[in-house]
């Protein structure tokens, strides 16, 4: 059920990006889709009653991890992937926003149906 709600968030972002006419709204829709994907990946690695994948001094015995840590830790792999994805999202957001500012300077509007006609 939580997976389906997370996909609903993705669909809301997709709706915003497909139907709206304003360019900033389209950028916001893409940002919402990105949040939904990050959330879904982190949810896949969760286990109920788990602990964060960060070891403390009590979790190591004779150079080996204790069985309690191994059996309770959540999945570190999606967390590592999402960590890079979030920062890349900020970079691509800055790129999209700079394109929006440039187009607004050239055409004087954010409306993509008016941008479509050529203007010398």
């Amino acid at each position: 059920m939580l997976y389906a709600l997370c996909f609903l968030l993705f669909v809301i972002g997709l709706y915003c990006a497909v139907v709206k006419k304003n360019m900033v709204k389209i950028v916001l829709g893409i940002v919402v889709m990105e949040y939904a994907v990050n959330l879904f990946l982190i949810m896949l690695g969760y286990r109920i009653g788990g602990i964060a994948p960060i070891a403390g001094p009590g979790d190591v015995e004779h150079g080996q991890m204790t069985a309690g840590f191994i059996n309770a830790s959540v999945d570190p792999l999606p967390q590592a992937i999402v960590l890079t994805s979030i920062v890349i999202g900020l970079g691509s957001l800055a790129l999209m926003v700079s394109i929006c500012i440039r187009i607004h300077e050239k055409y004087g509007t954010f409306d993509i149906t008016e941008i479509r006609r050529l203007k010398g």
Binding site: L90, G91, A94, S98, I101, E105, G108
Partner: peptide
């Protein structure tokens, strides 16, 4: 790397000002 890149991006966004608008 991340600090310098993001500072440069936001600086580029803030220096831009349109001509007539």
């Amino acid at each position: 790397k991340v600090a310098a890149s993001l500072f440069l991006v936001i600086f580029a966004l803030s220096t831009f000002r349109p001509a007539e608008n």
